[in-house]
Every structure is written in C-alpha cells, then in structure tokens.
C-alpha cells in the first residue's frame, strides 16, 4: 500500500515544503507562516509503528533543515521525536479521522515550539521568549484545522485494514 512507502513520505514532505515556502508566504505575514511538516508527520505517524514514525519525522525534519540551509538537525530532531511519540500514543488512544489528529497536532504544536526554543538557545541563538511564542495562536489554529484536512485528503488507513480490507466488518 502506497501510504506505508518511504517514497510516498518523501513526495508528501516535498509538496508540503513547496507549498510552505512558495504559497503560504503569500497568505501569512512574515514570521507567521505555518509549518506543514508537523501536520504531515502527525498524519503519517498515526498509522505507523513508533520506529517508522520516528523515521518519517526524521525524513521530514531533515528535508526541512536541508531546504532551510542553516541548522541541520533542528527540525530533524524535533520531528523524529514527535513521530515516535505520536506513533507510540497511537496504540493507546481511540482513533478517529477528525478530532484525534487535530488535537494531537495542536498538542504537538504546543510542545514543539518551546522545545525548539531550548535547542536554539543551546546552539547560541537566544531569541526572546515572548517574540518566539507570538505566532503560536495562529499556528495552533492552522495546525488543528489543516491536519484533519490533510488526513481526509490522503485517506490513510490502519495497516490491519489495508492488509485485510474487510476486517472492519468482522466481529
């Protein structure tokens, strides 16, 4: 199934980054352009094992780092851990196609921002906390709305349903 292939993830991240760098800056003001790698990582990891969730996040984050051309590892580390955590949570929660991806993405956005602030401070880029957190409401709203939308467009399904197409009807 195409959704479980690494090539699919790479293509999705590539499209996401293209939209993020060329299209979203036309809509959002500078400094407020939201991240599309985060919603994609959440959607992919929701249907994966923790190890593959980590791999997906690592790929997406690394692509973003290389594209940005400044700090290789900032997003790779963030999204690898995020992918692992989401995939780990996946087996413990009830999964639906709208609320759970939206809530998880919102929660992820809340955690990712302070995490990156700490990492940037560690590598010598001390940005003021208040300025750093300023775009959070916009990003939170965007992520919580866009993640279920992306999930709906992609139509990802759990592995057991893909392997056995009629398993949902079997009791």
């Amino acid at each position: 199934m195409w959704q479980f292939r690494v090539v699919t993830w790479v293509v999705l991240y590539l499209l996401g980054l293209l939209v993020q760098t060329a299209l979203l800056p036309q809509i959002f003001p500078i400094g407020y352009v939201p991240d599309l790698v985060l919603p994609l990582t959440v959607i992919i990891a929701l249907y994966e094992t923790p190890r593959r969730g980590l791999l997906a996040g690592l790929i997406g984050g690394l692509m973003q780092d290389v594209w940005a051309g400044r700090l290789w590892g900032l997003n790779a580390l963030t999204f690898a851990l995020l992918g692992f955590a989401i995939a780990h949570l996946e087996s413990r929660i009830v999964r639906d196609n709208v609320f759970v991806p939206g809530l998880l993405a919102g929660l992820a956005q809340l955690l990712v921002l302070p995490f990156q602030w700490v990492i940037l401070r560690m590598v010598g880029l001390a940005l003021p906390w208040s300025q750093f957190m300023k775009p959070l409401p916009v990003w939170l709203l965007f992520t919580m709305l866009v993640t279920p939308a992306i999930g709906g467009i992609l139509g990802f399904r759990p592995r057991h349903e893909v392997d056995r197409p009629y398993s949902r009807y079997v009791r």
Partner: peptide, 14 residues
C-alpha cells in the same frame, strides 16, 4: 522572490 525559508527562525528568501 520565488520562495521563503521553511524555518520561521531564519529570514531568507530565494
């Protein structure tokens, strides 16, 4: 200008 940096923390354009 054809694109911006995907990282919000750095301000570059292409």
């Amino acid at each position: 200008v054809i694109s911006r940096n995907p990282d919000t923390w750095f301000q570059t354009v292409v």
